[in-house]
Design a protein around this nucleic acid. Sequence first.
RNA 1: GGGGAGGUUCCCGAGCGGUCAAAGGGGACAGACUGUAAAUCUGUUGGCUGAUGUCUUCGGAGGUUCGAAUCCUCCCCUCCCCA
Length: 407
Amino acid sequence: MRGARFADEADYWGAEVPESGELRSRMHAELRDKLRLGRPLRVYLGVDPTSTDLHVGHFVPLQKLRRFQDLGHQVVFLIGDYTATIGDPSEQTSERKRLTHEHVLELAGNYTEQAYRILDPARTEVRYNGDWLGKLSFADVIELASIFPMKQIVARRDFQRRMEQGESLRFHESLYALMQGYDAYMLKCDVQVGGYDQHFNMLAGRAIQEHFGDPPHVMLTNPLLIGTDGRKMSKSYGNVINVHDAPGDMYGKTMRMADEHIQAYLELTSSLASDAIDAEVQRLQDGANPMEVKKRLAFDLVRQYHGEAAADEAAETFRRVVQRQEVPDEVPEVMVPSHLLGATWVDLCAGLDLSASKAEARRLMRQGGFYVEQTPVKDTEARAEIPPAGVLLRLGKRRYYRLLPGA
RNA sequence: GGGGAGGUUCCCGAGCGGUCAAAGGGGACAGACUGUAAAUCUGUUGGCUGAUGUCUUCGGAGGUUCGAAUCCUCCCCUCCCCA
């Protein structure tokens, strides 16, 4: 993994930006100075728990934190229990749904557990920003707000876009950066890591730290990981690789991604060393079959999260099921209740929720995507025969079920 | 608070009394192609039905009409301009 770099992409800041190269080299210099302090640095990453699962994109900054830990530094993992109830407007195209605090705390539990797949718990301090943000008075908020020229708040690219496009934009959304900036000040950290989308919030942190007489933190940002289809990674697009995905899913999702995105994934998600990544990228440019490179990537991903054996198995399953169209080893078994035993396939699929409706099952049949023991069944009136040994059902390219007569 | 524009099926968006389960695009699903994919092409995309058909759907509640997504009333929500 590599790819984390110093803040640049300065156009995020809107009009009032230093040259990107300038900010970047300043961060370099500041980090160098901090490292000369001769003490472990405090490095923090803040995450707002807004969903149940972390995806591989979240792991980019976590890997970075781990590197710091390995070098003897102290990591602070900040759970944005308070900020999550407001919602980070960064890179949003419309107003976010607000979450309740109870819900957020529930999600937070998953987050730390998943983060510890990468972080060393012994050298991780977990904090909740509700502990201080919840105690600010209105006067405190006013003081924080006074630090920022209105022009800077309004100049944000994401806000500008929403205003131009007539999307809803609410006042509280502009307060988000204040909250996150205050976190940075409260945590007394030397470095903050995060995605490019956090650029504005991190700068706000520096402004607040300086306002209160603290040295500003170094910003370390990484490119955002795109989804497997090249769009923004988002659960609603179904282009997300979750850390919790089963080995086979994780491998399959990786293989299904467009060839153009291989490099981004190699750089941001793989555990390969820098020169190994370069070698793979070179292979691609030399005209190697992208599938081979992708397989290496898929294997590496599964290995990181599920171990070597699972990765071997996932690779083998892919070879057999997808490439040779053979039946996978593990096919989910579905018991067919007795009242559906003599039914048509259509009724059976709808009754067992294998298809959303009878119409959908018929559609599949008519389109040739309905197979019984690998033979297409097109007759929508055909009745299902379920022998005691069971029967293999395949819907579309790779949804397999073994149907067994049940009670 | 005043004035204006809107809320349509998973999303965007057309429709503005019947011919509307509602154009078009996106997404999704299936098939063809293929080196995994992507791209491309074809088809499908509310439920029940073999099919004619029928039921539910166009922010919410009422109303007008033989008939409403389309007209009227009230309400809720969003955006824009002004204060």
